[in-house]
């Protein structure tokens, strides 16, 4: 089989097609499915930010939930205290989280493996709980974030969740377009070089620390956007929206997507949303024990994780490729 060249034009057409698909879907599905669709879009952005950091720059984060939290709180606070339009809240979320990511990255660039894992884990556990200490952060109830109603011109039937579905999907598409270009640019290649061989990269003139900090900054910015989108879909920002389990889920999503390539990002995002759904369907048939429905999703995710690590450690896409392109 000869190698096909995928050009940017092809990719753009792909993005437009996905956009069309989302548009069609949004017109056919109900409220709940729209909400799920929006959630998938949020996960796509969040998982992409992990893939950029781990798969390309080679740094580990078990604490992306905390970065999402920063984005979400920034968006909400910008709205509540500065009364700025929603899109500026989004931009603020990206900027502030990037700034935080840059600071964190300065520390992280000096850390390796378990030290970085420990630091990010502690961040994931620690950061959201700050909200309980300061009243302007709303404590356990949290603070609200309102992305607004759909424009009246869209008609009466245009529901709130459909609107969220649109906002999140469009943002996710734009972000993904930007990320995949970034990863193919000089920066993306530098990150890959550093990840593959730090010594060789340094010898060829790459500034290691700078490259790593930059990756952390960009990844954080993207995570901040994911956080703002998450706040959009749930209308609210509170510590309980960002438990350690969220960070673990995102890492899971990244592994299921194949952490080394951006292309599989949908797989992980869909899996995170679909698995609880499938689990409850299965559990419904499983009359008898009532604990099964609540336990099954976790169980399936855990088993999938282990299977992925064993059977397709480079992710499903690479697995498929290596099997069919020989």
């Amino acid at each position: 089989m000869h190698k096909r060249h995928v050009t940017n034009k092809h990719r753009f057409i792909g993005f437009v097609l996905i956009g069309l698909l989302v548009y069609i879907l949004s017109n056919t599905v109900d409220e709940w499915k729209s909400f799920q669709g929006a959630t998938i879009a949020v996960y796509v952005v969040a998982i992409a930010s992990i893939i950029l950091l781990t798969g390309y720059s080679g740094q580990i984060s078990l604490g992306h939930g905390a970065l999402l939290a920063i984005g979400a709180y920034t968006a909400a606070l910008t709205q509540i205290y500065l009364h700025l339009p929603v899109w500026i809240c989004f931009v603020a979320a990206v900027l502030i989280t990037s700034l935080f990511g840059a600071i964190l990255g300065l520390a992280a660039a000096r850390l390796t493996g378990p030290y970085l894992a420990g630091t990010t884990l502690a961040l994931a556990v620690g950061l959201p709980s700050i909200a309980n200490q300061f009243s302007f952060l709303g404590g356990e109830q949290g603070i609200s974030f309102d992305a607004g109603w759909p424009p009246l011109s869209f008609g009466e039937a245009f529901t709130q969740y459909k609107w969220f579905f649109w906002i999140t999907s469009l943002t996710a598409l734009i972000m993904m377009w930007w990320i995949q270009n970034l990863l193919r640019s000089r920066y993306g290649r530098t990150w890959r070089a550093v990840k593959t061989n730090e010594v060789a990269a340094e010898l060829s003139g790459i500034r290691l620390a700078r490259s790593k900090v930059l990756a952390f900054t960009v990844s954080a910015g993207i995570a901040g956007m994911a956080g703002a989108l998450l706040a959009t879909t749930i209308n609210n920002v509170s510590p309980s929206a960002f438990p350690l389990a969220l960070s673990f889920s995102l890492a899971t999503g990244a592994i299921l997507s194949g952490v080394n390539t951006l292309g599989g990002v949908m797989i992980g995002a869909v899996a995170l949303v679909a698995i609880p759904e499938i689990a409850s369907l299965v559990a419904d048939r499983w009359s008898g024990s009532e604990s099964v429905p609540s336990l099954l999703p976790d169980f399936i995710v855990s088993v999938l994780l282990i299977l992925t690590v064993f059977l397709a450690p480079k992710g499903p896409i690479e697995k498929f490729r290596s099997r069919h392109v020989k």
């Binding site: 781990t54 952490v259 080394n260």
Partner: peptide, 11 residues
């Protein structure tokens, strides 16, 4: 390489 530590953690 990059997955070296990440994969066992995930496992």
């Amino acid at each position: 390489k990059g997955a070296e530590i990440f994969l066992p953690i995930i496992a």
